[in-house]
Every structure is written in C-alpha cells, then in structure tokens.
C-alpha cells in the first residue's frame, strides 16, 4: 500500500512539474468552454424565441429543461474531448520509465508490478479529476442563473470519471508496450476510438454479435449516467474494464521481464 502511494505521489509530482499537464488542462478547458458557450447561446436563443412566441399568442411560455438541453449534451462533449486528451495523459505513464531506464530501479526495489501499475493508474485518474474540475465552473454558472437538477450533474461526473478511468487503464496498457511516447499516445487513441465506435456497427451484424458489440462499446454505458441514471450494471462494466486493463498492464511488464 505504501509503495502504491509512493508511486502515485511521484507521478502526480512529475505532472505538477511538467508542462504537458498544464497544456492539457488549459486546452481541455478551452475546448469544453467553447462548446459550453455555443450550447448556451443556442439555449438562450431558443428561450427568447419561446418567450416571443408566448407573447404573440398570449399564453404561458413552454418550460425548457436545462438538464435536458444543456447539461446532457455538455457531458457528451466532455466525454468526446476526454477521448482525445486522455491518451496524452497516459502516454508517458510507463513509456517514460522505459526510456529513462528507471524500470531497472522499479524492478530491483521491493515493489511488485501490480503496485507499480495501480499507483500509476490512480495517478492518471487523479489527474483526470483535476482536468474535469474547471468544467464544473460552467455547471456552477447554470446554478447561478438557472435552476438545473443537481443529481444528473453528479451522476454525469461519476460516469465521466468511471469512463475516464477505463480509458486510462487502456492507455496505461499501451504505454507498457513501448518506450516511445508518440507511439504510446497514438496506439492508445486508436484503441480507445475502436472501442468507442465498435457499437456503431452493432445494427449491421445480426442480433447476437450486435448485442455483444454494443455491450463492449465504451460510450454506450456512459449515456445513462449523463441522464442522471446510476445503473450498477454500467458501474460493473467500467470496473471490469479497469480491472482487465490493470491486469494486462501488470502481465505486460512481468512478461517483458521474462523475455528481456
């Protein structure tokens, strides 16, 4: 446990001192902000139109749902940007150790491969949570000027964190396979993208395979969260995903040791 925490702490410290983390957080927030702004503008425009219509026909304006029209699509946007940015967070997690030769330190001190991987995984998750914090300010704005429901926002973030963690476990696995960070980032992104779009083909391949594909698809399990539904089967899916990622990463670094 202490070893996991030591690795976790070291990784966070490295991120704290490295430029990449700040660039990622800055760009992530800027892009999320852009989408939020355009969605909000659209929402406001729609609201005005409703008001005008109501005045014209002398009736009550129809109620507009902030959660449905703003919060939900915004979570979709956050999930999509995460797909692009998380491989950048995970690319160096293990590749860097290989490049620096510090694997020789990790393997010859009393730390198990599992502890190394879990420490690194948790640091990735922590960094991802930090990455999401600025986007929460956008949601707070909604509370200041409107009256959104709280729980869908909470479940949305829970879903994002679970899905992001699954992304990180996959990115980490790719990172254990190469000492080249670029390959690590591209490989991670490609694998995530495949898992993302694999559900698209579900409707063409027949019912059995189709249901398998749409179950495997990493985004399908996120939608309920963004609607405010916390379904244990989705939580189980992500936890399973994370465990598989961690298991393979661990096996990967163990096997590298054997093959050398």
């Amino acid at each position: 446990m202490k070893e996991i925490f030591a690795i976790f702490q070291k990784e966070l410290k490295t991120s704290y001192y490295s430029l990449i983390a700040y660039i990622v957080i800055g760009l992530f927030t800027a892009i999320a902000g852009y989408f939020f702004f355009s969605q909000l503008s659209y929402f406001v425009e729609m609201a005005f139109r409703e008001m005008m219509m109501a005045q014209q026909y002398r009736m009550q304006p129809r109620p507009m749902n902030v959660n449905l029209m703003l919060v939900r699509p915004f979570f979709g946007v956050l999930a999509t940007i995460s797909l692009f940015f998380l491989p950048i967070i995970t690319m160096r997690l293990y590749s860097e150790e290989k490049r620096l030769g510090t694997v020789e330190l990790l393997y010859t001190t009393p730390v198990t491969p599992m502890q190394i991987i879990i420490g690194k995984f948790l640091s990735g998750v922590a960094l991802y949570i930090v990455l999401l914090i600025p986007s929460m300010f956008f949601q707070i704005l909604l509370f200041v000027y409107g009256d959104p429901e709280f729980w869908p926002i909470f479940s949305g973030y829970l879903g994002l964190i679970l899905m992001g963690s699954a992304f990180i476990s996959i990115g980490l696995f790719i990172s254990t396979t190469t000492e080249n960070q670029i390959i690590s980032a591209i490989g991670g992104f490609a694998l995530l993208l495949i898992l993302w779009v694999i559900g698209f083909s579900a409707s063409f391949v027949g019912p059995t395979l189709g249901s398998v594909l749409s179950y495997v698809s990493i985004i399908n399990h996120f939608e309920d969260f963004s609607q405010g539904v916390i379904d244990t089967s989705h939580i189980a899916y992500y936890l399973l995903f994370i465990s598989v990622g961690i298991y393979f990463s661990t096996k990967m670094i163990e096997s590298v040791k054997w093959r050398a």
Binding site: K2, E3, A6, Q9, K10, T14, L100, G101, V103, E104
Partner: peptide
C-alpha cells in the same frame, strides 16, 4: 543510473527511500 531527470536530488532519493520501504 536510473534517474528521473525532472526531479530534484532529494526528491528522487526520498522517492527511492519510499520504494525501499
């Protein structure tokens, strides 16, 4: 030498000390 090039000397040694329990 297995060094983390972006850490300070004492931070690095402290990290290794943690790894060594």
């Amino acid at each position: 030498p297995p060094l983390y090039t972006d850490m300070s000397v004492t931070d690095y040694l402290d990290f290794v000390a943690k790894l060594k329990g």
